[in-house]
């Protein structure tokens, strides 16, 4: 089975995010770029699936400027067999990414797609759906368990409240995984040395027939969350403190 993993490169979760002057993007200098953590689960799930099937290959695909190659090499160091870079410096949205990546899946004869349920940067949780739609494949997201037997895929989704919901679908399909599905392995040192020598396939947008495609949404405004207010210290005896606390919870915080 040719398994494809769609990987997004995102700012490290510890990055101090700064908004650019025009408020339409974030400052990209000084950002440490990493593989989207949900996509790490997807890579691990793909590797596990290949190991379980004892056949097939895992191809990681990422879209963006030259720097995304680093993330592809990390994925190879984790154990992926091949990597594809869709090289573009243009602004992207979920539609364009989804449509382009669907083309890559076709070109690479993908038979199963894993990806993270969302990117931790924009949190749109949309790419998997676009890809599935453009491929006309079934899909499931927020997957915490995935079993593959012959042509049947059985997945469990986490539903709010902690219950699980089981879905079945035929392959090929797009599976968007959630935290908890597995523990991603490390990019091992032998893997890193191997990844250094691996050739990474590059497509341009026009190689994929996407030259005339454009984004359908633009990011209009970014704002940082409001700074946390300092806490309030109540004084007086226990009874008056309790009274004041209830009043504040009701009138200021409006939680009761």
């Amino acid at each position: 089975m040719n398994i494809i993993v769609l990987v997004k490169q995102v700012p490290d979760t510890e990055t101090k995010i700064k908004i650019s002057g025009d408020k339409k993007s974030i400052e990209k200098t000084d950002v440490k770029w990493v593989i989207n953590p949900y996509d790490e689960f997807a890579i691990e799930q793909a590797l596990k699936t290949k190991e379980q099937l004892k056949a097939g290959s895992v191809t990681v695909v990422s879209m963006g400027p030259d720097r995304v190659v680093e993330s592809l090499r990390t994925a190879i160091a984790m154990g992926a067999d091949n990597a594809v870079h869709v090289k573009t410096d243009q602004p992207l949205d979920s539609y364009l990414v989804g449509k382009t990546l669907a083309e890559v899946v076709k070109k690479e004869s993908g038979q199963l797609v894993f990806t993270g349920k969302q990117g931790i940067d924009d949190d749109q949780a949309a790419t998997f759906g676009f890809v599935a739609e453009f491929l006309n494949w079934p899909s499931a997201s927020m997957v915490v368990k995935c079993e593959i037997a012959a042509d049947k895929i059985t997945v469990q989704r986490e539903v709010e409240g902690g219950t699980r919901f089981v879905l079945q679908m035929p392959a090929p399909a797009v599976i968007a995984v959630d935290k908890g599905i597995n523990t991603p392995r490390y990019a091992s040192l032998p893997g890193i040395m191997k990844a250094k020598k691996k050739e990474i396939k590059t497509y341009s947008m026009s190689d994929l027939g996407m030259a005339s495609e454009a984004i359908k949404t633009v990011s209009a405004d970014y704002a940082l969350p409001p700074e946390r207010q300092a806490g309030k210290k109540l004084s007086g005896d226990a009874a008056s403190q309790a009274k004041e606390l209830v009043r504040l919870l009701r009138e200021e915080a409006k939680v009761i």
């Binding site: 680093e70 090499r73 990390t74 160091a77 490390y186 990019a187 091992s188 040192l189 890193i192 040395m193 990844a195 250094k196």
Partner: peptide
């Protein structure tokens, strides 16, 4: 080098 950064990253994660 890119590999040295990658191995530093792996060891840091491991630690």
């Amino acid at each position: 080098t890119e590999e040295q950064v990658a191995l530093k990253e792996t060891v840091r994660k491991f630690v």
